[in-house]
Amino acid sequence: MSASQAFPVPSRNLHRFANPGRFLRLSGRLLPWLATIGIALSAVGLGWGLTLSPADWQQGDAVRIMYVHVPAAWLASFGYANLAAASIAALVWRHPLADLAAAEISPVGAGFTAICLATGSLWGKPMWGAWWVWDARMTSVLVLFFLYLGHIALVRAFDDPQRGARAGAILALVGVVNLPIIKFSVEWWNTLHQGASITLTGAPTMAPAMLWPLLLVAIGAMFGFAALVVARTRAAVMERRIRGLLLARAQEGEAA
């Protein structure tokens, strides 16, 4: 019996990609590309940032910490936006893969948020003179980290996975209010953290020789993030099927 035969194919359009067999096939083809592009771009960008890119006139070589800190920070917020999107798909459309994906996004997002906080601290000590300051930017990113941790704990806290997923989705959506706070904290209030160098509306205030490696790492990290989430969701789909099969066998055994 193959994986695709085990599940009835739903006829509804929206649930076309919800068929686990189809998801496993499509994601299996996609995953090597995501992983390869992610690793290649990140490696080139980080190598460029570490060696060829110039030192900053004030920061010296500590500016190189930016090439890991800023992509991690962008992904921390971007990952949370994805978690929220998956939560909406789960709550409104009852998309069967959305719950699984949400549960797999939050650990990866928490990982990138931890990288952002740790590398920010390692930059702050030599540059600002402090590992940590309770300004609006840093506090709101720490809140983001706790939202991720809360989601990780909540989706696994119920005996009934459906209820855990429901509770987690609600928590994730409530936490969305934190995303604009993170983004605009450096404009709404005075903070120790600097404002954005790269904005959608204005020209970047960063030398091109620093901007290019940063963008390479950022795009590479985004592919890497996607690869990690897809790989974990594939594993989760297969694990769910294993549980289903074992349960069916056990019931057959009881019936016999």
């Binding site: 900053d56 500016v63 003179g129 404002g195 160098s197 960063m206």
Partner: peptide, 10 residues
């Protein structure tokens, strides 16, 4: 504490 601004310059 020193505050860094958003300018990154070689």
């Amino acid at each position: 504490l020193a505050k860094h601004d958003e300018n990154y310059m070689p």
